[in-house]
Computed example of a mutant assay.
Amino acid sequence: MLKRLKLDTKLLREMDFSILIATILIVLFGILNIYAAMRPDNSDAKKQLIWFGVSLVVMYFIILIDYNILRNFVPILYWISILLLIYTKFMGATINGATGWIKIGSLFQIQASEVAKMALIFMLAKKMDEMELKVNNLKNFMILAAYTLLPVALIVIEPDMGMTMVCFFIVLGIFFCAGLDIRIIVGGLSSLVVGIMLLWNSGLIEAYQKRRLVSFLNPEADELGAGLQLMQSMTGIGSGGLFGTGLKLSQDAGTSYVGQFVPEKQTDFIFAVIGEHWGTIGAIVLLILYGILIYRTIKTARNSKDVFGSIICVGMASYFLFAILQNIGMTIGIMPITGITLPLVSYGGSSLLTTVMSISLIINIGMRKKKINF
């Protein structure tokens, strides 16, 4: 029994330790900044640390099993995620205007859309593998579109515009790398613009959410309202300068500008905490770690022995690229303010767990690679 729980030495030699190390460093850096943002209350940092411990245990078991066995459970995960989205719409907890969380006791909560995001990547990977990447076949394309639209539609009506955008760009990255006709991609982008216009006037998006989304264009116009969060975020980041103000963990949260004045600093605006305490140098170090993670993920995609493994890696690389750009961009005023968190850094147990599980699969795929042209 114990032998089954031991990782094969030959496989261990194939492990991409750069992905593992980069992931661990990013998460620990995130926990440190969550603590810095919320001090003297360290409950969020403690919960994030617990979630990380759970994630590492899950990671080990995922790495043990050949990912080709795990693909058999993809449909189950996909349909469970659909049921979770439906459940949260009617029975879930509402946070910041979106009904997308399932509470577990009084301490923990799971965001259903985080599970659905990963389930969508896995399902598209499984289907494209079965289709042998023939995504320009009309029947195949319609099947893939149906699997995509079902969870995305449920996320839209939560409403969760941030996660909707994430899913769209994940699917866009997957279809592009799978060789979908560029005319279809352009048509999809055009449809997105039309869809956003219809959604904007549908009544699903509240007036305060609209003001928040467009506030980045002119935050000074409503400094005490929709533009407050962005103005305070940019002030905090600017105060960090090149080297940052440093961490003064023994002092009260009031000594930190971001900790005192920026709402949602442990989640959506965690980069403002990083900018203030660590400065430009700290932000660059974080981006280098992300760069290593994305580069090695893309390399794993190219070296995967099958389409299933390649598409999972492409989907995760697409997620990281968009989420990092969007999250950092919204804290410095170049992107609209949405609920997109900074991967592996922002506070959120379900987000951390699902992301680490997906990274575990990337490591798994790399350990069992066989050169193919992709």
Rank of each mutant, 00 (worst) to 15 (best):
I359Q: 11
Y87P: 00
K89Q: 15
I174Q: 01
F308E: 02
S351T: 08
A112I: 07
S360F: 05
L2V: 11
Y147H: 10
L293Q: 02
D160L: 08
I69D: 13
I340R: 03
L56V: 12
T355S: 14
L120F: 05
S304Y: 03
L83T: 01
I82H: 07
K47A: 00
E114Y: 07
Y257G: 01
L120V: 05
F176I: 07
D41K: 07
F271V: 00
S55D: 11
G329N: 10
I174C: 03
G333F: 08
I334N: 07
K103M: 09
F322Y: 15
A207N: 14
A37R: 01
I31V: 01
Q48M: 04
L124A: 10
W79R: 06
N327I: 02
S190M: 15
I324A: 11
V214L: 15
Y319W: 13
T267K: 04
W51H: 11
Q209P: 06
N96T: 00
L133V: 01
L20M: 15
K10Q: 12
A98P: 07
T341C: 05
I31T: 00
L325V: 09
N140C: 03
K134N: 11
A153L: 09
F169L: 12
T148P: 05
D44R: 14
D41T: 04
G97R: 02
N136L: 07
Q229P: 04
T255M: 10
T148Q: 08
N136K: 06
C313T: 03
V345L: 13
L180I: 10
G179I: 12
I182H: 09
A98N: 13
M234Y: 10
P40A: 11
A112K: 10
L287W: 11
L228N: 14
I298D: 05
E132G: 02
I372R: 14
L213N: 10
I288M: 09
V152T: 09
K6M: 14
R212S: 09
G240Q: 01
M330I: 00
L352K: 12
L70K: 04
L286Q: 01
D44A: 06
I102K: 08
D66N: 15
S239G: 07
V345P: 01
N364L: 08
L12M: 15
M38H: 06
M163Q: 14
L228T: 09
I332C: 03
G259K: 03
L204D: 08
F122G: 07
S233L: 03
K89H: 15
V156F: 08
S18P: 02
K265P: 03
I102A: 09
F261T: 04
G195P: 14
L228I: 04
I34C: 02
M316K: 03
L28H: 02
T300M: 13
A119L: 13
L28G: 04
Y295W: 13
V57S: 14
E264C: 00
I50Q: 08
L287V: 01
I102R: 08
T267R: 04
F175Q: 01
S190H: 09
G179N: 11
L198A: 10
F175E: 01
K265I: 00
Q251F: 05
K299E: 15
A153H: 01
I196M: 15
K299R: 12
S233H: 06
V58D: 12
S256W: 02
A317T: 06
V307A: 06
N373F: 15
L120Q: 14
P343N: 13
K10H: 10
Y67S: 00
M123F: 04
V58P: 05
G53P: 09
D16P: 07
S55R: 10
